[in-house]
Amino acid sequence: MSEDTVPLKTPPLQSARMVETIYGCKWSLTVFSLLANGVNRPGEMVRRVDGLTTKVLNDCLRKNQSFGIIKRIAYPEIPPRVEYEITPFGRKFIRILDDLEKLQEEIVAATKDSPQ
């Protein structure tokens, strides 16, 4: 390889897959918003969001937990109590999602301003 040669840059497959999966999940962004606003118990999440079922929420929470975006905290109480919180990695990941949302807003604004 000569000094003028640039190595092939490969896409970030894992993070791209994560973004795609999160945006593909109808509820993940809503769950992140709930957690950011202090709603961290599953029952309260279901009560706060019309159309969100316990089964769908549990699938969403499990998926985000497997990515390391949120963590589950189980308290040894009777009745059992479970809460979720955003991890430090999750905060970083959500900032990236927020940046993508801002980029989308800029694209939409630019499209409106440009002549057709």
Rank of each mutant, 00 (worst) to 15 (best):
I70R: 02
P79S: 09
L61T: 01
E83H: 04
M18I: 02
V56R: 10
E83I: 03
C25L: 11
S66N: 14
V46I: 14
R62A: 13
Y84R: 08
E77N: 05
K92C: 06
T30H: 04
E85M: 15
D50H: 09
R41P: 00
R48Y: 00
T21R: 12
T21C: 05
I94L: 08
R48G: 00
P79Y: 03
Q65I: 02
E85T: 15
R48S: 14
Q65R: 14
R81W: 00
I73V: 06
N64K: 04
K92L: 10
L52K: 02
K92P: 00
N64G: 07
R47C: 02
L57K: 06
V49F: 01
L29K: 09
L29V: 03
S33L: 10
S66D: 15
P76M: 06
M45R: 10
R47P: 00
R48A: 14
L34A: 07
N40G: 07
C25W: 06
P79F: 00
R72I: 02
S66H: 12
E85Y: 03
V46D: 05
F67T: 01
G51P: 04
R48N: 11
W27C: 02
I86V: 14
T53V: 00
F89A: 13
M45I: 10
S28F: 01
I94K: 01
D50S: 10
R95E: 15
I22N: 01
T87V: 05
E44P: 00
W27T: 02
E20C: 03
G68E: 10
P80S: 12
L34R: 07
K92W: 07
V82A: 04
E44N: 07
R81Y: 01
P88A: 12
P88S: 15
I78Y: 14
K63N: 10
V82H: 08
R62L: 14
C60F: 00
E44D: 12
V46G: 07
T54K: 08
I96V: 14
R81A: 09
I94G: 05
R47N: 11
E44A: 12
I73C: 01
R95T: 13
E20D: 11
A74P: 00
V56C: 06
G51R: 05
V19C: 01
I94M: 12
S33Q: 11
N64A: 09
G90F: 01
P42A: 11
V31F: 09
I22G: 01
I78R: 15
D59Q: 11
I69T: 08
L35D: 08
E85P: 02
T54P: 00
Y75I: 07
V56G: 01
L35Q: 11
V49A: 04
I73E: 11
G90A: 06
T30I: 08
T87N: 14
R91T: 03
S66R: 15
V31C: 07
I70V: 15
L61W: 06
L35K: 07
S66Q: 15
P42W: 03
I22A: 09
G90I: 04
